[in-house]
Computed example of a mutant assay.
Amino acid sequence: MKKILFSLTLLLSSFAFAQNQPLIIGMELAYPPFEMSDENGKPTGISVDMAYALGEFIGRDVIIEDMAYGGLIPALKTKKIDAVISSMSITEERKLSVNFSKPYAKSYLAMLVNNKSGITKSSDLNAKGKKVAVKKGTSGHTVAEKYFPNAEILVFDKESAIILEVSQGKVDAFIYDPLTIYKNWSKNSEATTPLLEQFETESQPWAVAYRKGEDDLGAQIDDFIDEYKANGGFNKLADKYLGEERAFFKEKNVPFFFD
């Protein structure tokens, strides 16, 4: 009996210790308005607000760790962070390494093409001599290899470098989500064109990634997503950060992240 009581006490103490520890959330602060920094270098955006709301829901302080997108899952696996909230889509490959919460948003992939590329529809990109730029570690990277095997795929770490390549005509197209495509087209409309058609068969669900074996945290995250959605939290974030873009998507009959 003493052994059982000791084991139970140790288990409860471990749980209480974990609850008192800050929740370290990893994200790359380079995808406005979801993940970004304000003029003072402070994390802000939809994912940041969501992360702090999650911490409040489960009773833990939140620390935001900014890191390169490709390093998020390795950091999660090596326990440098506790979860990833970084507009990360669920893929079969990622599911081999980490667990995912319920989806909280969804997106799909679109293209930004150079006006002189001759590309008017997505299938035009799947040809020898065509060059497609993708950001390392993103769904666009994986999907490009599947849908455009005949094109040359160029992998970049920074979105800004890709946009420069497309606008200068050094690559024919950039594959990313439609919000990013829309924003970069609006800044480079003389040299580029957005192709918002959905060339994939399915949308890309976004979710919170957490370590395998940490089912208690996963259940808490799922409960948070359910309650936050029911209380209109995601719609409030969209109104706060994406009012103009949401109206544009509706006008063009393009699916929106939280629809």
Score class of each variant (00 low, 15 high):
200 E>C: 09
18 A>R: 15
170 K>V: 07
147 Y>K: 09
75 A>Y: 11
173 A>V: 08
60 R>D: 12
33 P>S: 05
225 I>G: 11
34 F>D: 03
66 D>R: 08
145 E>V: 02
256 F>G: 10
138 T>Y: 09
60 R>T: 14
128 K>W: 00
23 L>I: 14
102 K>A: 15
184 N>H: 14
89 S>R: 02
122 S>W: 04
165 E>R: 07
252 K>D: 02
218 G>C: 11
139 S>W: 14
249 F>E: 01
204 Q>T: 12
176 Y>F: 06
248 F>A: 02
214 E>W: 12
162 I>G: 08
174 F>T: 05
185 W>E: 07
62 V>I: 11
152 E>P: 02
203 S>Q: 12
248 F>P: 00
183 K>D: 07
186 S>D: 13
138 T>I: 09
15 F>C: 11
54 L>I: 09
189 S>K: 12
19 Q>M: 13
231 N>A: 11
119 I>E: 00
147 Y>I: 04
196 L>C: 01
163 I>C: 05
185 W>F: 13
49 D>R: 02
113 V>C: 09
181 I>E: 05
6 F>Q: 04
256 F>L: 11
79 K>G: 03
127 A>Q: 12
239 D>W: 00
77 K>T: 12
225 I>P: 13
213 G>N: 10
67 M>D: 12
54 L>R: 01
24 I>W: 12
19 Q>R: 14
100 F>P: 12
12 L>M: 09
68 A>E: 10
173 A>H: 08
30 A>Q: 06
245 E>I: 05
228 Y>T: 12
168 Q>P: 01
232 G>T: 03
38 D>M: 00
69 Y>M: 08
201 T>H: 10
60 R>A: 13
1 M>C: 07
55 G>F: 04
244 E>D: 11
146 K>L: 06
151 A>D: 09
15 F>I: 15
257 F>K: 08
130 K>D: 02
36 M>E: 03
176 Y>E: 10
83 A>V: 11
149 P>D: 01
143 V>W: 07
22 P>A: 14
85 I>N: 01
216 D>Y: 15
192 T>D: 05
215 D>T: 15
186 S>W: 07
129 G>F: 06
118 G>K: 07
248 F>V: 00
191 A>Y: 06
134 V>W: 10
21 Q>G: 12
81 I>L: 04
189 S>T: 08
181 I>F: 04
22 P>G: 13
247 A>E: 10
81 I>K: 02
52 Y>H: 09
168 Q>C: 08
145 E>R: 06
93 E>F: 05
82 D>W: 08
139 S>E: 15
206 W>N: 10
232 G>K: 05
2 K>F: 03
72 L>P: 01
100 F>T: 13
177 D>I: 03
104 Y>G: 04
211 R>I: 14
198 Q>M: 13
161 A>Q: 12
110 A>F: 03
65 E>V: 15
58 I>C: 09
38 D>E: 01
51 A>W: 04
124 D>E: 04
163 I>F: 14
258 F>K: 12
78 T>W: 05
